[in-house]
Amino acid sequence: MEIATREFKRSTVVEVSGRVDSATAPQLAAVLNDLMEQGQYNIVLDLGDTDFISSAGLRVLIDVQKTCQRLNRGELVLANVSEPIWRSFDLAGFVPLFNFYDDAMEAVGSF
């Protein structure tokens, strides 16, 4: 898994490529927690190059969404979600918990 971040005026885009599983989810959590500790609660997670997300990754997304939305200070939104990954989000009951965008720039524009 590789992670790159891009800063925008009102949000930060986090691009994740490769696999998010029990081996790599802690690394994703660390990057997202760093952002939040710096006061960034408007986060776009760009999953366009993400091949796979297990429940270890889903747990990270839930925890980050909880922290972002606390006190209405922000939101974690998801962009570029592939059909297989979207279906696993749907199975896990995650769809109502996140806003989904077709591409990262559209998500950036939502903030």
């Binding site: 297990s54 429940s55 889903l58 747990r59 839930i62 925890d63 909880k66 939305q69 009951g93 918990l97």
Partner: peptide
């Protein structure tokens, strides 16, 4: 079993792996 209709604040992701296995 995870409560998939719970609000965000009550979700913790526990039990999700086994739930997905059975669902899939």
């Amino acid at each position: 079993e995870p409560n998939l209709s719970a609000d965000l604040g009550e979700r913790n992701g526990g039990g999700l792996g086994l739930y997905l296995i059975r669902k899939i």
